[in-house]
């Protein structure tokens, strides 16, 4: 039940609770209780909206930054990650296997803003050895959703 609820709201967090109950053969109260429980357990950490900023007049620049660090004694990578993720302009921080340690996703209004963050905040951190900044040129797909495409039903309207 939980998995099915999560599958639905992961793709549409605004789904009507009465509809969801009917889809899952349950009732609204049960669904609401499960949702509240999962919020309390921090399984559900938030409800966000997927926005294609390119279609608005608002300027946004995002970058994926590869960061190599030296883990701190006794605390491993977590302490270093915390120093990075506490900056509000940081969208996501992942510990990564491979040739670098963290993948940091960042959003700023301008190229300059992102560059400033890297040079004045990220790079100077004690444990950071090196960074490589990759600017995102175009977002094709995000959170399982293809950004460019509007799905059109091309089937015949009636068929046997």
């Amino acid at each position: 039940m939980r998995e099915k609820i999560l599958n639905y709201i992961e793709h549409n967090s605004r789904i009507d609770m009465a509809d969801l109950a009917m889809l899952l053969g349950s009732d609204e109260v049960t669904i609401m209780n499960e949702l509240e429980a999962m919020e309390a357990e921090h399984i559900i950490c938030g409800y966000h909206t997927l926005i294609n900023w390119d279609k608005t007049g608002v300027d946004k620049v995002s970058a994926l930054i590869e960061v190599r660090v030296t883990p701190q004694r006794g605390m491993g990578f977590d302490k270093v990650a915390e120093r990075i993720y506490n900056y509000p302009e940081v969208n996501a921080v992942y510990l990564i296997s491979g040739s670098y340690d963290f993948m940091v996703s960042l959003e700023g209004r301008t190229l300059r803003e992102v560059a400033d963050f890297v040079s004045s905040k990220l790079s100077p951190l004690d444990s950071v050895l090196s960074t490589q900044t990759n600017f995102v040129l175009k977002k094709y797909k995000d959170h399982g959703t293809i950004m460019a495409e509007q799905h059109v039903d091309e089937r015949e309207k009636v068929s046997p």
């Binding site: 309207k157 009636v158 068929s159």
Partner: peptide, 23 residues
């Protein structure tokens, strides 16, 4: 079904629940 198809074809804004194939 053909006859019905012809009527629906004139109504481009109709919501169809009339197909026999997967979406």
């Amino acid at each position: 079904i053909r006859k019905f198809f012809d009527i629906v074809a004139e109504m481009p804004d109709a919501i169809s629940l009339g197909v026999g194939e997967p979406d």
